[in-house]
Amino acid sequence: MTALPQATQTKLGLVIDLDTCVGCQACVTACKGWNDAGIGLSDQNPYGADPSGTFLNRVHSYQVAIPDAPAQVVTFPRSCLHCDNAPCVTVCPTGASYKRAEDGIVLVNEDACIGCGLCAWACPYGAREMDEAQGVMKKCTLCVDRIYNETLAEEDREPACVRTCPTNARHFGDLADPDSAVSRLVAERGGYDLMPDMGTKPTNKYLPPRKKGPGTASPLAPLLDVKATGIAGWLDRMLGKI
């Protein structure tokens, strides 16, 4: 049913720390690896001249010009935010796109999808990509097949991108519980929503990069002002006069 649940008691989601993310793309690879294992996330012409493929997570990199400070590089992972007010759900004509009442995860039932692409249009964040081979819409499932999977070791019951992140920039948890580790991180670090004016009420939060302060002078700077003495000093003075 493409009506959104009134409210969800649990809001599973990600908190992404833009301060510690180094843009290594490990989350992209782990996501593709895990989600490619079952029905698959197809690639088109992957080894050819014009490769293309379906990914549920992409890592952008931006340069941020900061007044009175050196520019900062920020790597920025982008995936489904599992919005409370998900526009991708209500536009779906078949009921394939839905939000789970029990944990707030937004999913696509591929057996009911007609591949019209309207949900991808409705999403402001580009979180959905059509699988060109299967003709159905793909999106982040928050690894719903890992997080409740009792055949996996307990430490593996989190999304593949979170499990693999080498800098611990990705955190998974219940954002409806104010005492959860992720909610505390959001409160302490000023976690924020992407494009809040779009009215989507995302579950996922981003932690801003810490301010680096003004640029400090290089420790080698004093060496730049070296005064030549002796013959070199004489040459310096003579050449300066010519």
Binding site: Y62, Q63, V64, A65, I66, P124
Partner: peptide, 13 residues
């Protein structure tokens, strides 16, 4: 606003 980096400065790709 898309990246939220406006709270830091002016982003570019």
């Amino acid at each position: 606003t898309a990246t939220g980096l406006d709270r830091l400065g002016v982003p570019s790709v």
